[in-house]
Design a protein around this nucleic acid. Structure first.
Lengths: 220, 220
DNA sequence: TAGGCCACCCCATGAACGTGGGGGGTGGTC
DNA sequence: GACCACCCCCCACGTTCATGGGGTGGCCTA
């Protein structure tokens, strides 16, 4: 952020792609090349020197994994990390984002879009390729879907889930009872049952547990 | 999926934008216009007839909210829903995705990208504008950072947030106190402060509120 | 140096919650 | 008809929570 020129680092082992990326960077206004390496080790050293504002990072490298470099970057600088890879599988995507990546693009991203996404990342947005976003979204809404299902035998009844959802929205016994048109005692009964099935002893535990299992989802 | 031609429905109240969208659809190979409406009610009727494969949906409509239509689509057909709106705020994005939207694009999306994203959605991918993806990602991995700043004046202190997170994981006063190496009384003090700032009167309310605002995130 | 915000500690009281019991009623299955 | 699962109601007891007070010491900024 020294000036209006953002310094970009590249970590990509494929020779031709690396050259191509360099080309894109150097021919774009507002971007400058900070470093360009083909190995994790090299990039690590280079980034300590060059202090990039953003790094384009491949995942599969000869001497390690791109995420190792992401971790290094994130722990030593405030630079952005944009994953640029052929690996479009669920695990790669999720791991990368979890590791702190600021965006995840597949290598077939056209040059224009690449430029645009670099700019966006620098502005604090989060470019994610549609394919990758699918996984993210999956995880977020109904993680239960992916994770198969399994889980303990005692599933909550619809009524119990209803009560739990009300609780998770902050309602009290009294309020939940009114909302469902029940007596407080009945709410209490459901609570007992819920706690027993979930093996917990308080509403926050129950909510936490239910959320973990995907019984209720965020915002519920 | 009848042939290789995908039937597209449009729900958009802005006259000129609607015409523009129609234009894009009809001039694209592989796409055909199923219907084009400016109201939720109209779209509902039209979609029952026209059986679209994918719908472009605006959120703010004269007679209701685009999400109502999403719900209708999702419950009656297997058509994809692509949100196309000017509303780029966190709540809109999350609600839309939660409602079942298959993608979320802002209206400033250029025509080429729009075409591409329609195709992608049809293929089962999830196009999400970088801006929107930011929220999604935030929600997912707890990085409540970014989001600019703004927000109400009474921000929670780090300690208060810590306590709140422990609560959200189901801990009691006692347990939270032990975890943080504090006395129960101190926990109680933070609780008071938290409730005051968040204007709530119970821990589940506080957790709910904090989650809404993005103070704490799912998984926390 | 006073005034503010923060972290931390303590006490007390009433309301809300958790959990043990006791009943009802429907609707299904062996 | 006996046996479940689910839905609903009630009582009572002990615990936890919510909320009002009362403090201390540190740091920072006016």
């Amino acid at each position: 952020m020294t000036a209006t020129i953002a310094r970009i680092g590249i970590l990509e082992d494929d020779e031709s792609l690396r050259l191509y990326l360099e080309e894109v960077i150097t021919t774009t206004d507002g971007l400058a090349l900070a470093f360009s390496e083909g190995t994790v080790a090299g990039a690590r050293l280079a980034s300590d020197e060059a202090r990039p504002d953003l790094c384009l990072i491949d995942l599969k490298l000869p001497d390690g994994h791109g995420l190792d470099f992401v971790a290094h970057i994130k722990s030593t600088t405030s630079a952005k990390c944009l994953i640029l890879t052929v690996l479009g599988d669920r695990t790669s995507v999720l791991l990368a984002l979890r590791a702190g990546a600021d965006g995840y693009l597949l290598k077939d991203t056209p040059p224009d879009l690449l430029r645009a996404n670099i700019m966006r990342t620098l502005r604090g947005e989060t470019p994610i390729s549609p394919q990758a976003a699918t996984f993210l979204l999956e995880m977020w809404r109904g993680a239960e879907a992916a994770t198969v299902s399994e889980q303990s035998e005692d599933a909550l009844t619809t009524r119990e889930v209803e009560v739990l959802k009300l609780f998770s929205r902050g309602l009290s016994y009294r309020e939940a009872a009114d909302t469902l048109g029940l007596s407080q005692h009945t709410i209490g009964d459901y609570v007992k049952s819920i706690y027993r099935k979930l093996r917990v002893h308080s509403r926050t535990e129950a909510i936490f547990e239910a959320r973990q299992v995907g019984l209720i989802s965020p915002l519920d």
